[in-house]
Amino acid sequence: MKNNLVQLIVFLLFVASGAKAIAKEVLIISAIPDQYPEKLNRLYTKLANELSKDLNIKVKYKPLVNYQAAVSAFRTGDLDLVWFGGLTGVQARLQTPGSKVIAQRDIDAKFHSVFIVNTKTNLKPIKDISELKVLRGKRFTFGSESSTSGRLMPQYYLEKAGLQIRDFKGSKSGFSGSHDATIALVQSGSYEAGALNEEVWKDNYNSGNIDVKKVIVIWRTPPYSDYHWLAQPDLDKHFGKGFTTKLQKKIIGLNKRNPKQKEILELFSANRFIKAESNQYKNIEKIGRSLGKIR
């Protein structure tokens, strides 16, 4: 009996160590779940195939259900390369010292959020930030609670305009969970107003998913730095010397002349990826700290 137990433990340890060794030959990529899961699945599976082809390793996409899980799983080393938002990227870097900012999209250096309203509110587009006060007493929704463009920056500008969360109807704001859901909920009238990522708005607008008779943009925020790729500090150790640089070159090298790469870039709403630095996100960190999302 005792002997069997020892054998079982040895077996389990064997399985454990074996699985670990195999796991490290695979590059696990992931992303914060900011849009409809089906779209993310399509996009990142394509990207994983593309990276796998040129880097000669297995690349696997691991879908996640919330933003915070992305930060935690990056810290625990379950994910190797993650597409983070501004805020989650800063959170991840603080928790995983030495992790490397690989790239951002051409649009991320000057990113915007938009405030949208349901047309039944009869609110008109505004010119000055102080006019955001018109949203007082409205049913308002953010996206995910850790979203940079769907919560952090909108809340920052709302507070700048003198509007606190308790000023919304019910003294609370909603959290729709994703940018797409924010559009759907404001368009249907579940919420009277909301804030989201401008790229997701444009994307939905161009593909005809938005009924302009029901939902309009009333204000666009000033620019800030947002999304970026973040890699684990020790990728070179696992995948060979110079791997991180090779990976960065590959991502920045994606271009629209190649049909497969064009498809990926279009799903990212980008023309190309460009180099990025962690100090571009100093301001996000400051705002994150002032709103209590970074400690």
Binding site: Q68, V71, Q95, E145, S146, K172, F175, K293, I294, R295
Partner: peptide
């Protein structure tokens, strides 16, 4: 956690701020 009320909500907020 989803309803935005009580200790459950605070837990979610604190977790997502990694406090």
């Amino acid at each position: 956690v989803v309803g935005g009320v009580g200790l459950g909500w605070q837990l979610q907020e604190s977790l997502s701020s990694f406090a």
